[in-house]
């Protein structure tokens, strides 16, 4: 069950989050949260409901403006980018792509079109290009279709290319969200409860998919409540409660941590032997 061996995690960091704090009025949703992701690892962010996991995602992707803290992205070319205060679309352009806890597809666009939207920030054609449809614009459009359908093939949705996204079954919608995020060519993929509402079969497929993506060199950070999935999948786990990080480490370390057990009191059974 444990896939620790045979992975390609290097020690090079891709993301460094320091002292991230987010206040909503008087409520502190994130309190000096720190996190470091290494290139090519699967990291999981767990914690009880309301611990601030999704808030963290929202701060990281620019949806919320954090009160304090430092967000740094280390690009493969060696450059360091500060993500603080960037608009969500700029952050996506820098290489962070996410999915949503409550699926946010474009339901009245086709599956392929949904993925093509993901290509938006990697393509250039403007209004004039659209109207005149010159060779450059035509080539770009062709590439968009080609790349998008290849991603869909990989994700197992190639058969439903022209279906409306809203018509897909639940599990397929979750996968489509991942496909759409992949189309932005991310360095880091952020998955917010990707297995929520999935049946065991779908969860297994998801598990495989995430591993495959990691093997291709993608760094993945996921929020997940399905402890079996988290324990089998993750290289590294961060545990949050009340906006703070209370523990981190490998699945085995986290499982033994008394703080974590305390935070999850009443949920110990999920920590049973995996």
């Amino acid at each position: 069950m444990n896939r620790q061996e045979g992975q390609s995690t290097s020690d090079r960091p891709v993301l460094e989050v320091m002292n991230l704090t987010m206040d909503f009025g008087g409520i502190r949703a994130l309190d000096g949260f720190c996190l470091r992701l290494r290139q090519g690892e699967i990291a999981a962010l767990i914690g009880p409901n309301g611990a601030g996991k999704t808030t963290f995602f929202n701060c990281l992707t620019g949806m919320y403006l954090p009160t304090r803290g430092e967000l740094q992205l280390f690009r493969p070319d060696g450059a360091t980018r500060r993500l603080n205060g960037l608009r969500p679309d700029k952050i996506t352009e820098q290489g962070l792509a996410r999915t949503f806890q409550n699926i946010r597809l474009f339901p009245r666009m086709t599956v392929l079109e949904n993925v093509m939207i993901g290509r938006h920030c990697r393509t250039r054609a403007g209004v004039l290009g659209a109207i005149l449809r010159g060779p450059a614009a035509r080539r770009e459009e062709k590439d968009t279709v080609r790349i998008s359908s290849r991603i869909l093939e990989k994700i197992g949705l190639a058969g439903q290319l022209n279906e409306f996204a809203g018509n897909l079954p639940y599990g397929a919608q979750r996968r489509l969200e991942i496909a759409r995020a992949l189309a932005t060519e991310p360095l880091i993929l952020l998955l917010d409860e990707p297995a929520a509402g999935m049946n065991p079969q779908e969860t297994r497929e998801l598990d495989e998919l995430i591993c495959r993506l990691r093997d291709e060199g993608l760094t993945i950070l996921l929020i997940e409540h399905d402890m079996k999935l988290v324990m089998s999948l993750s290289d590294h786990i961060f545990v949050m409660d009340y906006g703070r990080k209370i523990a981190e480490g490998t699945p085995a370390e986290v499982r033994r941590n008394p703080e974590v057990i305390k935070a999850y009191l009443g949920e110990e059974e999920s920590f049973g032997p995996a």
Partner: peptide, 23 residues
């Protein structure tokens, strides 16, 4: 076109649009 698709997507869900890198 690329722009037109972005418009349709914007009509569907603004937040998802931004997360997909659309200004």
């Amino acid at each position: 076109s690329r722009i037109g698709r972005a418009w349709f997507a914007l009509r569907e869900d603004e937040i998802a649009c931004q997360a997909m890198g659309i200004d």
